[in-house]
Design a protein around this nucleic acid. Sequence first.
DNA 1: GTTAACCGTAACCTGAGCTTATGCTCGATG
DNA 2: CATCGAGCATAAGCTCAGGTTACGGTTAAC
Lengths: 291, 291
Amino acid sequence: MLDVRKLRLLRELAHRGTIAAVAEALAYTPSAVSQQLAALEREAGVPLLERTGRRVALTPAALTLVEHTEKILAVLEQATADLAASRAELTGTLRIGAFPTAVRTILSPALVALSRDHPGLELMVTELDPATVPAALRAETLDVALVQDYDYVPAEPDPALDSEPLLEETVYLAALSGGPLETRRDAPWIVGTPGTLCHTMTVRACQAAGFTPRVRHHADDFGTVLALVAAGQGVALVPELGLLTHPANVVLTALPTRRRTRLAYRRGTKEHPAVIAARSALNAAATGRKP
Amino acid sequence: MLDVRKLRLLRELAHRGTIAAVAEALAYTPSAVSQQLAALEREAGVPLLERTGRRVALTPAALTLVEHTEKILAVLEQATADLAASRAELTGTLRIGAFPTAVRTILSPALVALSRDHPGLELMVTELDPATVPAALRAETLDVALVQDYDYVPAEPDPALDSEPLLEETVYLAALSGGPLETRRDAPWIVGTPGTLCHTMTVRACQAAGFTPRVRHHADDFGTVLALVAAGQGVALVPELGLLTHPANVVLTALPTRRRTRLAYRRGTKEHPAVIAARSALNAAATGRKP
DNA sequence: GTTAACCGTAACCTGAGCTTATGCTCGATG
DNA sequence: CATCGAGCATAAGCTCAGGTTACGGTTAAC
């Protein structure tokens, strides 16, 4: 009987590439992970890892093992979901991850509704960049998370994760005057810090319009971005949710680009009562904002 | 993360009914099983067991947990099968269960072929009554087994097991004179010991013909049965494979009843290379006997 | 050449999970 | 109705799986 705990380490290794990263993610020492994987290899009777330089690579046999592991972990999630559903009241803790804008706009009202309807449910919110969400969900640091699915930035399919559309917003060009994206070829730009989804989204949208933005400022908070625009420091792309307060002199031009926000969770937790509750609260908060 | 080892205990409990039986089957003490199940219940946060008299019953939540466990164990079997397939040579041990007649007729030649073609494969044969096969397969005492599927004795579907047809034979009425089953209403009968499949089969076949057999002798070995028939002690039903040597004065009348033999294994092991090898060897032995 | 990142082994230590021992409850039996 | 056996649960103790820390070897980058 193969040990599922060890298989989980192998799966994490397939995603993260190094034993050190697996250990870091799952709160072990690298030595422990190494020993467990060595034991798994011994039990399997087939080579699973081979050193390539200072990393390890998975053999084909190990990769098929990982695929099976994904299935098993999904069933286990489903089983715990069913257990939670069979309980009368919703208890335990739900760890929610979200990007900063979402926290202040749709997540806050959803949290109010959630804690009102389910007093037994402990809510933990973590603010993080969507790029780090998949790893956090897999490592069970988070249970559900809001992620973005900008045009031009499709999320790679992850067999361990599942998601569903939650919200779709218009993206605006924020400037001191109106006019389409193409006319901003030579304007100074205000974008997010490199590596974030906002940054990528802006750069790709400009490239699709035929130019590379001349980056002048970096700012992730849309309030700051709009203040910079109002101060004549440049132009920027801002999604609908970033416009809670916008300075009077900033002109917004709707672009065809749309920002889609999705609710992500581990495969198998779709029917977990806490996820169901989060889904309905978030949907209510998202549509409640519309008018 | 639910512990699959503990879930396996729960599944076994669902099948066997008492903690003591589970412990017996899996080579633990009852105390260990009790503690593990108590721990599982604690982790689940939901009552799983409730004492009814001096036994324990599973709650609905526990039953759905068992269903999930079946899926997980099947995937685990599949994973080990894939591992074995990725190995060049076939190694390890294959534990085969079979009823006595089968051992002497089709299993022996199959064993010869198997050990010739796969010298690295260790073969272990256990002679047992088909009625005990499902439990032995689930408890991983056996890997594959030959079971019978007489008319009137359909095997109940077990979610943990899988099987496929292997052989179909005619059942004969053995007597000192020819004639259909209905004419033996008042004859003394020779049947297997109560509880075995052979016994059930004979009784039901007679009942389908409109009478209950008057049992005179009990014998499980078909050689013995035929000797008793030859000695004028009564009549009996004997399947084709039981007729390796039959006394000259015994007359055989083919009946419409047919005996079907199936190859059974745990769900998920269908593509295990050792099972594949066993399948082909047994099929060859079964068809090789036909002419 | 030096350094940093990473993997693996050795040695040690802790607790999960086994065993044995024992008590309790329920149902069958005379 | 008293007795007895079957079965479950708890207590106490022991063992080993599986963790940690320490250290050495190898690889890639600068």
